[in-house]
């Protein structure tokens, strides 16, 4: 397990968010150490996606505090800079279909960081190698399998050279065989010391990559524990119910 730095990478205090009358996040507080891998579990609708979307401010929060790498996230935050620090990968990859794999990865550094075309493409090729898909660089997303597309999406996010990566169910749309490829990449990111927060429903996957499991239900964090503890000795009834349902799958 990596040694956490003194200052946490992410600090969340009393985070609240509602859609109209419906409270999605209720007083969520936790912190994430530098290099730590957090897996967020919880039933559907418990607010997991909303929580991680607050970190790159794709969803603005209503109350409470988020501090990332020492900076408070609020309406004055410069979004471009924040999103260069915090990368995100989606369940449906969301690759740009009109761009080749290489262009998908090179476009963001070019337009956001104003990198030159050549520098951006070098960077892109570098990360495509990292996710083992450099040989597909000239193809269009439609020509790739789901697992390949998700690896490209990871490479694209990495091209912005973020300090934190957010994954929202990155394997939910994949075949079981493809899941392990994505898991390998996430494990290798861990080795590089990337701070990651990952929402998933894959228990094996969670167990493999997590330093710590956060279990959410109805907008609250009910448990926060190392995976061995969480999976073998869940402390709440809700977590026990959740795990028993998961295992039945």
């Amino acid at each position: 397990m990596p040694q956490p730095d003194a200052a946490p990478m992410i600090e969340v205090r009393n985070l609240q968010k509602s859609y109209g009358d419906f409270a999605v996040l209720r007083n969520v507080s936790f912190s994430v150490a530098r290099g730590e891998k957090i897996v967020i579990l919880g039933p559907s609708g418990s607010g997991k996606s909303t929580l991680i979307r607050c970190f790159n401010r794709i969803e603005p929060h209503d109350a409470g505090e988020i501090v990332i790498d020492g900076e408070r996230i609020d309406q004055t935050t410069e979004l471009t800079r924040l999103r260069c620090t915090v990368g995100m990968v989606f369940q449906n990859y969301n690759l740009f279909p009109h761009l080749s794999v290489l262009e998908n990865c090179a476009l963001p550094p070019r337009v956001v960081k104003k990198a030159g075309r050549e520098a951006a493409e070098d960077l892109a090729m570098n990360f495509l190698h990292r996710v083992n898909i450099a040989d597909q660089a000239r193809k269009y997303p439609i020509q790739l399998s789901g697992g390949q597309q998700q690896r490209v999406a990871i490479a694209r996010a990495l091209c912005m050279q973020p300090s934190v990566m957010l994954f929202d169910e990155p394997t939910a749309a994949l075949d079981p065989e493809a899941v392990s490829g994505v898991a390998d990449i996430m494990a290798s990111l861990s080795a590089d010391g990337m701070t990651t927060l990952c929402v998933t429903h894959e228990m094996g996957f969670a167990r493999r990559i997590a330093d710590r499991i956060i279990f959410m239900d109805q907008g609250r964090i009910l448990e926060s524990a190392p995976p061995e503890d969480f999976f073998t000795r869940p402390r709440t009834d809700r977590a026990r119910d959740f795990l028993s349902q998961m295992i039945r799958y």
Partner: peptide
């Protein structure tokens, strides 16, 4: 797909960059 704009946002693009580089080329087709 709204996921296209979402991905653009998450990569730090401005609204105009998202339209220019992501949405318009696909909408043109």
């Amino acid at each position: 797909d709204p996921g296209q704009a979402l991905a653009g946002d998450a990569l730090g693009m401005t609204r105009m960059q998202v339209y220019r580089h992501v949405i318009f080329p696909q909408a043109l087709r």
